[in-house]
Computed example of a mutant assay.
Amino acid sequence: MTIQSEPGGGRLDPSLSAIMGERRQLINLAYRLLGSLSDAEDVVQETYTRWYAMSRQQQDAIESPGAWLTKVASRLCLNVLSSARARRETYVGEWIPEPLPDPTEWINGRSDGITADPADRVTLDESVNMAFLVVLEAMTPAERVAFILHDVFRYSFAEVAEIVGRTPAACRQLASSARRRIRASQAPAALAAQQAGVVRDFKQAWEAKDINALIGLLDPDATAIADGGGVVGAVLRPIEGAEQILRSLFNLEGRLRNLTIMERTVNGQPGLIAQHDGVTVSVYAFEVAGDRIKHIWAVRNPDKLRPWTTG
């Protein structure tokens, strides 16, 4: 998006600067609602397109441009979420939210040669860890929007109701239902240092092919899910049980020689990436309870690894 300065003065119109200052907030909102950075970027682009399609008089009549932009972006996200259910029925294998690196590790280069705008970087907190986003995927679009807007971004239920098109009481019920889903599905969180230690031990045991150590680090009923999107090879259904998970990991290593495993922050939590010939081919997010791994999410679809590699 190209921003023109005011003629003569060479300085950005303060009102335009304020409008563009909302972009980071909109990206953060849309990513949490959609679980996809590319979809979030598209929604924000469309939101600004609608703003600039209005006359200056129409823009000036809007009391709170930031609230207007949020309302439009949220409604666009609702539309995307509704259509996403149909799209994902034809998705090859399991669909996992797009993983994000720590901002300091973000790769700026894109395949089209454009440098990523720093505003594209999503603020990482507990509302974007992979376990949280996976639970959001199971919610209805209205539940997801009501919960994220109220519980994460602190909008009142009256404001949420205007966006979702339901009564404040109905939105309160939607958010309450979403909270119950989260409480029912998430294991007690391990301390950050403890989780980092478990993930590091897992990496070392994987590299050493220490089967006993790996079995000890995995919950016996652990589940692993891989997302290849039909673009690269990946198991099409969830893998249940520690032994089955290890078999899948070693099969991957057997197919890709010279696989390098590295510790990285994935959606704000300790995770791993696998590189082949210097290109990131897999990103692993973990849910750790106590000293055991309960869930592993392996994203292999290269379309979802854009921020991780220029290859």
Rank of each mutant, 00 (worst) to 15 (best):
E89K: 15
E159F: 02
T140K: 12
M54T: 07
Q204I: 03
E98I: 00
A184W: 06
D102C: 05
R172E: 10
G254H: 03
P118K: 10
D227V: 08
A234L: 05
S177F: 05
V80P: 00
N251R: 10
V152K: 11
I261K: 03
Q195G: 11
L16T: 02
W297L: 09
I273N: 00
L218C: 06
A192K: 11
V122W: 00
T49L: 12
I163D: 02
G216Q: 09
D60F: 03
I245G: 01
Q57S: 15
I96D: 01
K304C: 03
P302I: 09
T309K: 14
A222C: 13
E240Q: 09
V283S: 02
P188S: 06
Y155E: 09
I27E: 00
A18R: 13
P141M: 08
E243M: 07
W308S: 04
D117A: 14
R183K: 11
E253M: 12
I225P: 05
T265C: 06
A131N: 01
G271M: 11
E162C: 04
S82R: 15
P141W: 01
E41F: 03
V80H: 02
E159Q: 11
V122K: 06
N251M: 10
A285V: 00
N212W: 04
A298C: 10
Q204S: 07
A234H: 03
Y284W: 14
N129E: 13
A53G: 08
V281M: 12
A158S: 12
C171A: 04
H276Q: 10
A84D: 10
L218W: 03
N267P: 03
V266A: 00
I293L: 11
I96W: 02
R237I: 02
A224E: 15
E137V: 08
P14F: 09
Q186M: 13
L34W: 04
S64C: 03
A187L: 10
D277W: 02
A192S: 12
F157R: 01
L76D: 01
G8H: 12
P168I: 02
I245H: 08
A119R: 13
G229E: 00
A142I: 04
T280H: 02
N28S: 12
A178L: 09
A84I: 05
R75C: 01
A53S: 14
